[in-house]
């Protein structure tokens, strides 16, 4: 893959226009997901039910944009028979649209749960840890989209490496929640919902990582195959040792 080929224009200019359009729609989608996530976390922290409801509704636009991006990508494949870097741009765009749509769903789920959480006992310590986790995930998502548009595999690689921190924070939140729920059954309702919020954030971190990997694929033609360290220890977690 070469910078040269990416900067050169196609002889058929409408091909460039179509490639630019589909990526512009993808970026608009990315912007809406970032806003949705940020609003969902604000709604959670500030117990703002109205903001939460607006955030849930806003996800529909993200879904519509995903449809648009996928239709445009399919049209380019059918009509332009893209090859090499063009093919990889279209395939990466298609995959990233999927990952953004999933991320949007996770943000919507956080917003929904924040409505229930607003009516339960507050667990400030956990909410703060989740806000910290959210900040990391937001910056990963923004960074991954930025790396994609700049075709920057080094930036993408550093995003991949940051996912371990998100997983580690998730582990901490998971354990803290267990402790709170064991201490006082009144914490179980907000605790369960906050756990899902943390899990949603952890999943968005995975999608941001996936987006970063698409940038590496776009530039190099190959997906990174080295396994990232798995930091999620919760599958084996019990209350016994507590």
């Amino acid at each position: 893959m070469t910078d040269q080929a990416m900067k050169e224009k196609h002889i058929v200019r409408s091909f460039d226009t179509e490639l630019e359009a589909v990526q512009a729609h993808l970026m608009r989608m990315g912007g809406l997901v970032e806003t949705g996530l940020s609003d969902a976390i604000t709604a959670l922290r500030e117990r703002d039910v109205h903001l939460a409801e607006r955030t849930v509704k806003a996800d529909r636009t993200i879904d519509e944009l995903e449809e648009l991006v996928k239709t445009e990508a399919a049209n380019i494949i059918a009509r332009r028979a893209p090859t090499a870097v063009d093919l990889r741009v279209v395939l990466a765009t298609f995959t990233i649209a999927n990952q953004l749509e999933r991320s949007g769903d996770h943000a919507k789920n956080i917003a929904k749960r924040s409505i229930t959480i607003a009516q339960s006992a507050s667990l400030d310590e956990v909410t703060a840890a989740i806000a910290h986790q959210a900040k990391m995930v937001q910056s990963m998502l923004a960074g991954a989209l930025d790396a994609f548009m700049k075709r920057d595999p080094d930036a993408a690689q550093s995003i991949r490496e940051r996912d371990a921190e998100v997983d580690a924070t998730y582990n901490t939140v998971f354990r803290t929640l267990l402790t709170h729920m064991m201490e006082d059954p009144a914490n179980i309702t907000p605790g369960m919902h906050l756990h899902f919020v943390a899990k949603n954030l952890e999943r968005i971190g995975d999608h941001a990582t996936g987006i970063a990997e698409q940038t590496i694929y776009l530039v190099s033609g190959e997906l990174p195959d080295d396994d990232r360290p798995r930091r999620d220890q919760t599958p084996t977690e019990t209350t016994e040792a507590r």
């Binding site: 893959m1 070469t2 040269q4 080929a5 050169e8 091909f15 090859t83 090499a84 063009d86 033609g221």
Partner: peptide, 19 residues
């Protein structure tokens, strides 16, 4: 060659760019 050519000249040609 059609998904990940090594040479920029190949890439320019098969993707329909001026090269």
């Amino acid at each position: 060659i059609f998904t990940n050519p090594e040479d920029p000249r190949t890439e320019s040609y098969i993707t329909g760019r001026i090269g």
